[in-house]
């Protein structure tokens, strides 16, 4: 049993069922990546795991505990951090205030946690008093990840963290994500840049039409001919 696992999840919006019984799990200290074509339900799976979307059937367990009935805020308290794809920073707050809001539930640990984030993303220390909305795309993503880290998560969920950033920034961001995983945090992310993401993934899930198509280690998936041809463009 994984540290966090969504088992046989069925969910959707309105009448449309998008997830048709898919299973996603991740261990502490490990990076799991969800890839798949557009409309496969990658982001939906993420939202369902986080409780932003109610499950029709299936279960979400964390550390052996059923958390399926909890609101997202409660899951944050239990140690789930979430970086949404868009609107993932407080644009009208300074960088430091963004981090402070991330630490809202643990104000006493703020200084230490902030120091860790600054070590991970040194540029943020420099720009700590600047409005987050004035930063560049890559820096904003750093603020977004930093804010989520400030919630002291045991698992960090990232919805397409590299959307819209340059390849160099992407590589940099992936390196930082590996660093975070080395601290013992479980990482689950959805990625458009499937090939690069699978390279750093301990575990990869290929979703198609709301179902698990392939599940294996990142390397194995990259090596798989069918996966390569169908989903990675050769």
């Amino acid at each position: 049993m994984s540290f966090l696992i969504g088992k046989d999840m069925v969910a959707g919006y309105g009448g449309a069922t998008i997830l048709k019984g898919c299973t996603i799990g991740v261990e502490q200290g490990e990076i799991a990546v969800i890839v798949g074509p557009n409309g496969a339900g990658k982001s939906t799976a993420m939202r369902a795991l986080f409780g932003l979307l109610d499950l029709t059937s299936g279960a979400v367990m964390m550390d052996g505990q059923d958390i399926g009935a909890l609101k997202p805020q409660m899951r944050v308290q239990l140690g789930m951090g979430f970086v949404p794809q868009t609107a993932n920073i407080f644009t009208e707050l300074s960088v430091e205030e963004n981090l402070e809001m991330g630490a809202f539930l643990h104000p006493d640990d703020f200084a230490d946690a902030e120091e860790q984030v600054f070590e991970l993303f040194p540029i943020l220390r420099e720009k700590r008093h600047q409005l987050a909305g004035e930063l560049s795309g890559g820096q904003r993503q750093q603020v977004a990840v930093g804010r989520a880290l400030m919630t002291e998560p045991k698992i960090l969920m990232l919805d397409e963290p590299t959307a819209g950033v340059s390849p160099i920034v992407m590589d940099e961001l992936f390196d930082r994500i590996i660093d975070i995983a080395h601290q013992g945090i479980a990482i689950l992310m959805v990625e458009q840049n499937a090939r690069q993401a699978l390279e750093i993934a301990d575990k990869g899930y290929v979703l198609v039409q709301g179902e698990n198509r392939f599940t294996d280690s990142g390397k194995a998936l990259l090596a798989d001919r069918e996966v390569r041809q169908t989903f990675l463009g050769g």
Binding site: P84, F90, M101, F104, L105, R147, T151
Partner: peptide, 8 residues
């Protein structure tokens, strides 16, 4: 939404 995700 993000405020909610931060536990506010």
């Amino acid at each position: 939404d993000l405020a909610l995700l931060s536990g506010i």
